[in-house]
Design a protein around this nucleic acid. Structure first.
Lengths: 148, 148
DNA sequence: CACTTTATATAACTCTCAGATGTAACCTGA
DNA sequence: TCAGGTTACATCTGAGAGTTATATAAAGTG
């Protein structure tokens, strides 16, 4: 009882802490592209070629919205359309090398921006964050594929 | 030597982990309001009444952009304009009780959404995140007031 | 008291999204 | 095999939220 109570409380504390962390981090790293565009490219990396409608659902966009977003990405050479061999109606979207490069560069920039702050932390706190990296990994992986 | 090398590496790992965490969390909690509007309200809480132009700079918006955003917030009753007693040109923006309530409710909603995932973590991972809460606190506080 | 600077507001435009609707490809049963 | 229904995507308009350029009003300055 005490145990489950504690688990619930600490989970809530962690969730609240993560939310505040995100609010903070958002301000540290200005981003030039639409966050939806970035997240979509990210999904393309982890999911591979994927249908427009499925992409729209994952990114919580309407299908027409995703269609125009894919158009923009294609114009910029960051993604491309591929015919679906199994269904003539469908279009698969695939990230290009340029798209991957953009994500890599962006990630590096953001990491650099956060780095300054992380380096200034008390050593013990930094160690605590390092120790939590696997946990973050699990969290991110928890819905990385097939969100339900 | 080895030590400083390790510090830099682990800091980078932490920063990279945080970036991926943000990408992930973005998808978990859809928000109805503009993220800029939320962040602005948040700033109003932590800074108290503040000038339009200073607010614009903090949120990386142009001054006209912040003027219209403040108009929207005022129409919704989430913030209000107050005359600056020391400067007739300036307008101070102040959050209202309704604005505070909205932030509180939103934080609760997001925390609830994250909670599900946190509770499913392996106990050891959850403990690691709990242990990192103070570190997160320090990180968020590092530029919570007066970023420069 | 003119002149410059500062703080905000207004106007016109752009970009990105949502909602409604159209069109082509697939599936199903008589 | 073909008519009717469904699925997947595209197109069209309209609204929201931001930008730059510019105007207005209050402060400072010689």
């Amino acid at each position: 009882m005490t145990s489950s109570r504690t688990t619930a409380d600490t989970s809530a504390a962690v969730a609240a802490g993560l939310d505040r962390l995100m609010m903070w981090a958002r301000r540290q790293v200005p981003s030039q592209m639409s966050s939806t565009a970035i997240a979509t490219l990210d999904t393309l990396v982890y999911r591979g070629p994927i249908r427009i409608s499925e992409l729209a659902e994952r990114e919580r966009l309407t299908q027409p919205g995703m269609t125009t977003l894919v158009n923009r990405l294609a114009e910029q050479g960051l993604a491309e359309r591929v015919a679906d061999a199994t269904d003539g109606r469908a279009t698969l979207v695939r990230i290009t090398n340029a798209g991957r490069d953009l994500l890599i560069e962006r990630h590096a920039n953001r990491t650099q921006a956060l780095l300054t702050h992380v380096e200034r932390l008390q050593p013990a706190h930094r160690r605590a964050l390092v120790a939590a990296l696997d946990a973050i990994e699990e969290l991110v992986a928890s819905t990385a594929n097939g969100t339900p």
